[in-house]
Amino acid sequence: MSEFLREQGTPSMGDFLEYRPYRGRLRGPMSAVFAIARTSLGLLFRRKLFWGLYLLGLIIFFLYFFGQYLLVWAGSQDSGQAIRVGPFARIPRKEMIDGLRNMLKMDGSPGMFHNFLQTQGSIVMVIFALAGAQLVGNDFRFRSFPFYFSKPIGILHYLLGKGLAAAVLLNMLTTIPALILFFQAWFLGDWSWSEGKFRLFVSILGYGAILTWGLVPLLLASSAGLTRTIPIAMFWIFSFLFLHGVAEGLVDRLGYPANWKALDLWNDICQVGSRILGVVVEAKNAPKQPDFSLVLGIVLTIPILSFIYLKIRLSRVEVLR
Protein backbone atom coordinates (compact mmCIF):
# COMPACT_ATOMS: atom_id res chain seq x y z
CA MET A 1 0.00 0.00 0.00
CA SER A 2 2.72 2.42 0.99
CA GLU A 3 4.66 1.74 -2.22
CA PHE A 4 1.53 2.36 -4.24
CA LEU A 5 0.91 5.61 -2.41
CA ARG A 6 4.48 6.76 -2.91
CA GLU A 7 4.20 6.18 -6.62
CA GLN A 8 1.10 8.35 -6.62
CA GLY A 9 3.03 11.11 -4.92
CA THR A 10 1.30 10.81 -1.56
CA PRO A 11 2.96 12.76 1.26
CA SER A 12 5.44 11.06 3.51
CA MET A 13 7.27 12.49 6.50
CA GLY A 14 10.29 14.63 5.82
CA ASP A 15 9.36 15.42 2.25
CA PHE A 16 8.40 18.76 0.82
CA LEU A 17 4.97 17.39 0.13
CA GLU A 18 2.59 19.87 1.60
CA TYR A 19 3.55 22.46 -0.97
CA ARG A 20 0.55 23.04 -3.17
CA PRO A 21 0.51 24.80 -6.50
CA TYR A 22 -1.61 27.93 -6.71
CA ARG A 23 -4.48 27.55 -9.15
CA GLY A 24 -6.16 30.90 -8.57
CA ARG A 25 -6.17 33.99 -10.73
CA LEU A 26 -3.56 36.70 -10.29
CA ARG A 27 -4.93 40.22 -10.26
CA GLY A 28 -3.39 43.27 -11.89
CA PRO A 29 -0.78 45.51 -10.27
CA MET A 30 -3.33 48.15 -9.23
CA SER A 31 -4.63 45.79 -6.55
CA ALA A 32 -1.16 45.97 -4.99
CA VAL A 33 -1.67 49.71 -4.44
CA PHE A 34 -4.35 49.02 -1.83
CA ALA A 35 -2.26 46.29 -0.22
CA ILE A 36 0.70 48.66 0.09
CA ALA A 37 -1.50 51.40 1.56
CA ARG A 38 -3.21 49.06 4.02
CA THR A 39 0.04 47.47 5.14
CA SER A 40 1.76 50.83 5.54
CA LEU A 41 -1.05 52.15 7.70
CA GLY A 42 -1.08 48.91 9.67
CA LEU A 43 2.64 49.27 10.37
CA LEU A 44 2.13 52.88 11.41
CA PHE A 45 -0.69 52.19 13.80
CA ARG A 46 1.14 49.31 15.42
CA ARG A 47 2.95 52.04 17.30
CA LYS A 48 1.09 53.52 20.24
CA LEU A 49 2.64 56.92 19.53
CA PHE A 50 0.48 57.32 16.44
CA TRP A 51 -2.68 56.33 18.25
CA GLY A 52 -1.83 59.01 20.83
CA LEU A 53 -1.20 61.61 18.14
CA TYR A 54 -4.34 60.63 16.29
CA LEU A 55 -6.43 60.98 19.44
CA LEU A 56 -4.80 64.35 20.07
CA GLY A 57 -5.89 65.37 16.60
CA LEU A 58 -9.41 64.23 17.35
CA ILE A 59 -9.59 66.41 20.47
CA ILE A 60 -9.97 69.47 18.23
CA PHE A 61 -12.68 67.65 16.33
CA PHE A 62 -14.52 66.83 19.56
CA LEU A 63 -14.19 70.46 20.64
CA TYR A 64 -16.00 71.54 17.48
CA PHE A 65 -18.44 68.63 17.57
CA PHE A 66 -19.63 69.11 21.14
CA GLY A 67 -19.21 72.91 20.99
CA GLN A 68 -21.54 73.09 18.01
CA TYR A 69 -24.02 70.78 19.68
CA LEU A 70 -23.88 72.65 22.99
CA LEU A 71 -24.45 76.03 21.39
CA VAL A 72 -27.41 74.75 19.39
CA TRP A 73 -28.83 73.08 22.47
CA ALA A 74 -28.34 76.24 24.59
CA GLY A 75 -29.94 78.35 21.85
CA SER A 76 -32.96 76.10 21.82
CA GLN A 77 -33.68 76.71 25.51
CA ASP A 78 -36.07 79.39 26.73
CA SER A 79 -34.79 82.47 24.92
CA GLY A 80 -36.79 84.99 26.97
CA GLN A 81 -34.45 84.98 29.95
CA ALA A 82 -31.56 87.38 30.17
CA ILE A 83 -28.15 86.40 31.47
CA ARG A 84 -26.40 88.68 33.89
CA VAL A 85 -22.95 89.66 32.68
CA GLY A 86 -20.96 91.64 35.23
CA PRO A 87 -22.59 93.79 37.95
CA PHE A 88 -25.01 95.71 35.73
CA ALA A 89 -25.37 94.30 32.23
CA ARG A 90 -28.00 91.75 31.38
CA ILE A 91 -27.92 90.22 27.90
CA PRO A 92 -30.80 88.22 26.45
CA ARG A 93 -29.86 84.54 26.24
CA LYS A 94 -30.53 84.28 22.50
CA GLU A 95 -28.29 87.26 21.70
CA MET A 96 -25.54 85.87 23.83
CA ILE A 97 -25.68 82.43 22.23
CA ASP A 98 -25.71 83.93 18.73
CA GLY A 99 -22.80 86.16 19.65
CA LEU A 100 -20.84 83.17 20.95
CA ARG A 101 -21.61 81.17 17.84
CA ASN A 102 -20.38 83.99 15.61
CA MET A 103 -17.32 84.62 17.70
CA LEU A 104 -16.30 80.95 17.90
CA LYS A 105 -17.51 80.31 14.37
CA MET A 106 -19.26 77.13 15.49
CA ASP A 107 -22.13 77.72 13.18
CA GLY A 108 -21.56 75.32 10.30
CA SER A 109 -20.38 78.17 8.10
CA PRO A 110 -17.43 77.98 5.63
CA GLY A 111 -15.44 79.98 8.19
CA MET A 112 -15.89 77.20 10.74
CA PHE A 113 -14.54 74.58 8.33
CA HIS A 114 -11.65 76.85 7.35
CA ASN A 115 -10.68 77.27 11.01
CA PHE A 116 -11.14 73.59 11.72
CA LEU A 117 -9.11 72.40 8.74
CA GLN A 118 -6.36 74.92 9.40
CA THR A 119 -6.10 73.82 13.03
CA GLN A 120 -6.16 70.14 12.15
CA GLY A 121 -3.45 70.80 9.58
CA SER A 122 -0.96 71.60 12.30
CA ILE A 123 -1.62 68.21 13.95
CA VAL A 124 -1.31 66.54 10.54
CA MET A 125 2.09 68.11 10.07
CA VAL A 126 3.31 66.78 13.42
CA ILE A 127 2.06 63.30 12.55
CA PHE A 128 3.54 63.45 9.07
CA ALA A 129 6.90 64.57 10.39
CA LEU A 130 6.97 61.49 12.62
CA ALA A 131 5.32 59.05 10.19
CA GLY A 132 7.52 59.69 7.17
CA ALA A 133 10.27 57.33 8.27
CA GLN A 134 7.76 54.60 9.02
CA LEU A 135 5.86 55.03 5.77
CA VAL A 136 8.69 55.39 3.27
CA GLY A 137 12.05 56.05 4.92
CA ASN A 138 12.42 52.54 6.34
CA ASP A 139 12.12 51.01 2.88
CA PHE A 140 15.24 52.93 1.91
CA ARG A 141 17.06 52.39 5.17
CA PHE A 142 16.39 48.67 5.40
CA ARG A 143 16.70 48.09 1.63
CA SER A 144 13.26 46.61 1.19
CA PHE A 145 13.05 47.41 -2.51
CA PRO A 146 14.14 44.02 -3.84
CA PHE A 147 11.03 42.75 -2.07
CA TYR A 148 8.72 45.26 -3.74
CA PHE A 149 10.22 45.49 -7.21
CA SER A 150 10.73 41.78 -7.74
CA LYS A 151 6.95 41.55 -7.64
CA PRO A 152 4.77 42.48 -10.62
CA ILE A 153 4.52 46.13 -9.63
CA GLY A 154 6.37 49.24 -10.74
CA ILE A 155 7.55 52.49 -9.16
CA LEU A 156 4.19 54.09 -9.92
CA HIS A 157 2.26 51.44 -7.96
CA TYR A 158 4.63 51.73 -5.04
CA LEU A 159 4.24 55.50 -4.95
CA LEU A 160 0.48 55.31 -5.33
CA GLY A 161 0.28 52.84 -2.46
CA LYS A 162 2.42 54.93 -0.14
CA GLY A 163 0.67 58.09 -1.24
CA LEU A 164 -2.71 56.52 -0.60
CA ALA A 165 -1.62 55.57 2.93
CA ALA A 166 -0.49 59.13 3.65
CA ALA A 167 -3.65 60.54 2.08
CA VAL A 168 -5.89 58.31 4.17
CA LEU A 169 -4.02 59.36 7.31
CA LEU A 170 -4.38 63.03 6.41
CA ASN A 171 -8.04 62.81 5.50
CA MET A 172 -8.85 60.78 8.60
CA LEU A 173 -7.78 63.87 10.52
CA THR A 174 -9.14 66.59 8.26
CA THR A 175 -11.73 65.88 5.58
CA ILE A 176 -13.64 63.07 7.28
CA PRO A 177 -14.07 64.92 10.63
CA ALA A 178 -14.97 68.05 8.66
CA LEU A 179 -17.66 66.13 6.79
CA ILE A 180 -18.98 64.77 10.09
CA LEU A 181 -19.19 68.35 11.37
CA PHE A 182 -20.94 69.35 8.15
CA PHE A 183 -23.61 66.68 8.55
CA GLN A 184 -23.94 67.49 12.24
CA ALA A 185 -24.54 71.16 11.41
CA TRP A 186 -27.08 70.12 8.81
CA PHE A 187 -28.95 67.82 11.21
CA LEU A 188 -28.85 70.41 13.99
CA GLY A 189 -30.16 73.03 11.57
CA ASP A 190 -33.30 73.06 9.53
CA TRP A 191 -32.66 69.81 7.60
CA SER A 192 -33.08 71.64 4.32
CA TRP A 193 -30.74 70.88 1.44
CA SER A 194 -29.82 73.87 -0.67
CA GLU A 195 -27.32 74.67 -3.36
CA GLY A 196 -25.23 76.50 -0.78
CA LYS A 197 -24.99 73.38 1.34
CA PHE A 198 -23.99 71.32 -1.68
CA ARG A 199 -21.31 73.87 -2.55
CA LEU A 200 -20.02 73.78 1.02
CA PHE A 201 -19.93 69.97 0.93
CA VAL A 202 -17.90 70.01 -2.29
CA SER A 203 -15.68 72.78 -0.94
CA ILE A 204 -14.77 70.69 2.09
CA LEU A 205 -13.81 67.85 -0.25
CA GLY A 206 -11.83 70.35 -2.33
CA TYR A 207 -9.99 71.67 0.73
CA GLY A 208 -9.12 68.09 1.66
CA ALA A 209 -7.88 67.48 -1.87
CA ILE A 210 -5.64 70.56 -1.73
CA LEU A 211 -4.20 69.49 1.62
CA THR A 212 -3.57 66.02 0.16
CA TRP A 213 -2.01 67.41 -3.01
CA GLY A 214 0.17 69.86 -1.11
CA LEU A 215 1.39 67.68 1.72
CA VAL A 216 1.46 64.03 0.60
CA PRO A 217 4.02 64.30 -2.25
CA LEU A 218 6.20 66.47 -0.03
CA LEU A 219 6.01 63.86 2.72
CA LEU A 220 6.99 61.06 0.33
CA ALA A 221 9.84 63.07 -1.17
CA SER A 222 11.25 64.26 2.15
CA SER A 223 11.01 60.74 3.59
CA ALA A 224 12.67 59.21 0.54
CA GLY A 225 15.49 61.73 0.72
CA LEU A 226 16.10 61.87 4.45
CA THR A 227 14.81 58.41 5.53
CA ARG A 228 15.20 58.91 9.32
CA THR A 229 12.65 60.47 11.67
CA ILE A 230 14.75 63.29 13.09
CA PRO A 231 15.99 64.72 9.77
CA ILE A 232 12.46 64.45 8.35
CA ALA A 233 11.03 66.25 11.38
CA MET A 234 13.71 68.93 11.05
CA PHE A 235 12.83 69.38 7.39
CA TRP A 236 9.16 69.84 8.29
CA ILE A 237 10.01 72.26 11.06
CA PHE A 238 12.12 74.22 8.57
CA SER A 239 9.44 74.20 5.88
CA PHE A 240 6.42 74.99 8.01
CA LEU A 241 7.72 76.83 11.08
CA PHE A 242 10.98 78.46 10.12
CA LEU A 243 9.81 79.63 6.69
CA HIS A 244 6.53 80.76 8.26
CA GLY A 245 8.49 82.90 10.72
CA VAL A 246 10.79 84.25 7.99
CA ALA A 247 7.88 85.15 5.71
CA GLU A 248 5.97 86.83 8.50
CA GLY A 249 9.03 88.73 9.69
CA LEU A 250 9.90 89.94 6.20
CA VAL A 251 6.42 91.14 5.32
CA ASP A 252 4.78 92.15 8.59
CA ARG A 253 7.80 93.47 10.48
CA LEU A 254 10.31 94.59 7.84
CA GLY A 255 7.76 95.78 5.30
CA TYR A 256 8.83 93.62 2.38
CA PRO A 257 6.29 93.11 -0.43
CA ALA A 258 3.45 90.72 0.45
CA ASN A 259 4.61 88.22 -2.15
CA TRP A 260 7.41 87.21 0.21
CA LYS A 261 4.71 85.54 2.25
CA ALA A 262 4.57 82.90 -0.46
CA LEU A 263 7.62 81.39 1.24
CA ASP A 264 5.20 80.06 3.86
CA LEU A 265 3.98 76.87 2.20
CA TRP A 266 1.37 76.15 4.85
CA ASN A 267 -0.08 79.62 4.39
CA ASP A 268 -0.10 79.03 0.63
CA ILE A 269 -2.05 75.78 1.00
CA CYS A 270 -4.52 77.45 3.37
CA GLN A 271 -4.94 80.40 0.99
CA VAL A 272 -5.95 78.05 -1.80
CA GLY A 273 -8.19 76.11 0.61
CA SER A 274 -9.94 79.27 1.82
CA ARG A 275 -10.59 80.29 -1.78
CA ILE A 276 -12.19 76.93 -2.38
CA LEU A 277 -14.37 77.38 0.72
CA GLY A 278 -15.18 80.94 -0.35
CA VAL A 279 -13.91 82.43 2.91
CA VAL A 280 -12.83 86.05 2.62
CA VAL A 281 -10.78 87.62 5.39
CA GLU A 282 -12.47 90.92 6.06
CA ALA A 283 -10.80 92.15 9.22
CA LYS A 284 -9.00 95.49 8.88
CA ASN A 285 -5.86 94.20 10.56
CA ALA A 286 -5.81 90.99 8.51
CA PRO A 287 -2.26 90.06 7.49
CA LYS A 288 -1.15 90.94 4.00
CA GLN A 289 -1.30 88.05 1.59
CA PRO A 290 0.68 87.33 -1.57
CA ASP A 291 -0.88 87.27 -5.04
CA PHE A 292 -3.18 84.33 -5.39
CA SER A 293 -1.66 83.35 -8.75
CA LEU A 294 1.77 83.08 -7.11
CA VAL A 295 0.34 81.05 -4.23
CA LEU A 296 -1.48 78.74 -6.61
CA GLY A 297 1.65 78.33 -8.69
CA ILE A 298 3.65 77.28 -5.65
CA VAL A 299 0.99 74.87 -4.44
CA LEU A 300 0.85 73.26 -7.86
CA THR A 301 4.61 73.21 -8.46
CA ILE A 302 6.01 71.82 -5.23
CA PRO A 303 4.18 68.47 -5.46
CA ILE A 304 5.26 68.12 -9.11
CA LEU A 305 8.87 68.75 -8.10
CA SER A 306 8.42 66.22 -5.30
CA PHE A 307 7.18 63.60 -7.77
CA ILE A 308 10.14 64.26 -10.09
CA TYR A 309 12.54 63.88 -7.17
CA LEU A 310 10.81 60.66 -6.08
CA LYS A 311 11.05 59.20 -9.55
CA ILE A 312 14.77 59.96 -9.73
CA ARG A 313 15.40 58.71 -6.19
CA LEU A 314 13.54 55.46 -6.74
CA SER A 315 15.07 54.76 -10.12
CA ARG A 316 18.50 55.00 -8.48
CA VAL A 317 17.63 52.43 -5.85
CA GLU A 318 19.88 49.42 -6.22
CA VAL A 319 17.30 46.67 -6.33
CA LEU A 320 19.80 43.91 -6.82
CA ARG A 321 23.10 43.94 -5.05
Binding site: Y22, A35, I36, Q134, S144, F145
Partner: peptide
Protein backbone atom coordinates in the same frame (compact mmCIF):
# COMPACT_ATOMS: atom_id res chain seq x y z
CA UNK B 1 17.35 38.44 -3.03
CA UNK B 2 20.73 38.28 -1.39
CA UNK B 3 19.95 41.33 0.72
CA UNK B 4 17.52 40.79 3.59
CA UNK B 5 14.89 43.05 1.99
CA UNK B 6 12.66 42.61 5.02
CA UNK B 7 10.19 45.16 6.32
CA UNK B 8 10.90 45.97 9.95
CA UNK B 9 7.95 45.80 12.29
CA UNK B 10 6.21 43.07 10.31
CA UNK B 11 5.53 39.53 11.42
CA UNK B 12 6.55 36.62 9.25
CA UNK B 13 3.00 35.77 8.23
CA UNK B 14 2.19 39.38 7.35
CA UNK B 15 5.33 39.65 5.26
CA UNK B 16 4.64 36.56 3.16
CA UNK B 17 0.96 37.40 2.88
CA UNK B 18 1.83 40.94 1.77
CA UNK B 19 4.18 39.46 -0.86
CA UNK B 20 1.25 37.44 -2.16
CA UNK B 21 -0.94 40.50 -2.47
CA UNK B 22 1.81 42.35 -4.32
CA UNK B 23 2.03 39.40 -6.68
CA UNK B 24 -1.68 39.61 -7.40
CA UNK B 25 -3.27 37.10 -5.03
CA UNK B 26 -6.45 38.11 -3.25
Amino acid sequence: SEADALIPGMTGIDYVSFAGELAGLS
